[in-house]
Design a protein around this nucleic acid. Structure first.
Lengths: 182, 182
DNA sequence: CCATCATATGCATCTAGTTGCACAGCATCG
DNA sequence: CGATGCTGTGCAACTAGATGCATATGATGG
């Protein structure tokens, strides 16, 4: 039920087409919640029928017509209702953890190799978030009030990637201590 | 596709009924991968048809009959194949992150209250993992080789909870600095 | 005596999300 | 000149997982 609300937030920040939303879900919000354009169109239709959003058809020349969606007052109300309810704490769900448990029954060298790959991915993501942070929030102690939420989300992403990285390093230290792994 | 492999690992450790597996998924493995008994029975059936597991029916008196499942050699092979392939790095997916982005459009006091609740949950989980670690692995520097995987998984859980906790504290420091939040 | 819990297995239904495919025009690159 | 990519919207089929319900027996607790 979170995609609905992710879209509400995104449209609250700025009206957009399904296509625009799909691109936002490839960036910014999408760092923490992925969605395909197919899924977005499907949910937008449902939200429109629920009266949370409405659209205006814009004719373009040279390009396909588009539907620009915006929030209705019911949509804004829903954001108030939703943020007033507690969000259940997510359960951990890591396929990789299962793989670690499979160590005694599987292919340890391949698993170590996998950890190295994963470490690289987390390093890249962390670097990317850090770059975004430096670019959009050069002075974190002087944020505009409307920036605080997005900043905290970015911080969450950085913390998560740092932790994932630290975990990879702990694993490598156990499983391949002979290698210089840092 | 991970539940199959979680079950394979669990059965590799020890043969079990669907009911037993469901209980394991309420504990140990289940800290990192939840599954309902319905889902487990469904997947066990599929795995049996695929030839990865086989069962022996055990008649009991006073209790319902049960099917004790164990790995076939094809099942053991599959664990080898699976651990030889890279596991894609999971995308972050946090409904709570969306809620943070909703700060300017929602109910800030309720959100702060939610963060406090979440902090408590993460504290409890961390304490629980730490207790398990102390109990089952009192000396982490002298683990048996077959314990290393499970230990590393537990470490991953602890790191994740510590990070979630740290994030909550950062958020509270921003949104409710007047409170003593530690 | 009734309710609930533990053991034990499963079906039916629904929803969110993935994957594949379709169509249409313009721009850009080789 | 052909291929690819961008803009733009969507349907169809499928899968994993969640939720609700069914059934059977024995033990325990109020």
């Amino acid at each position: 039920m979170a995609l609905e609300h992710a879209i509400l937030v995104s449209l609250a920040e700025k009206s957009a087409t399904g296509y625009d939303l799909a691109r936002r879900f490839d960036a910014s919000i999408g760092y923490f919640w992925k969605a395909s354009h197919q899924q977005i169109y499907k949910v937008l239709g449902r939200m429109e029928r629920a009266g949370w959003v409405e659209f205006e058809t814009v004719t373009q020349d040279g390009r396909p017509d588009k539907k620009v969606y915006g929030l209705t007052s019911a949509g804004r109300d829903e954001l108030g209702v939703w943020t007033s309810k507690a969000t259940p704490v997510e359960d951990l769900r890591s396929e990789f953890a299962i793989k670690l448990r499979a160590l005694p029954f599987g292919n340890p060298t391949a698993i170590v190799e996998d950890v190295r790959t994963r470490r690289r991915v987390h390093e890249e993501r962390l670097a990317y978030y850090a770059k975004s942070a430096a670019r959009f929030y050069p002075d974190p102690d002087a944020l505009r009030p409307d920036q605080v939420g997005a900043w905290l989300v970015l911080r969450g992403g950085m913390l998560a990637e740092e932790t994932a990285l630290a975990w990879c390093n702990e694993i490598l230290q156990r499983l391949a201590p002979e290698d210089t792994d840092r």
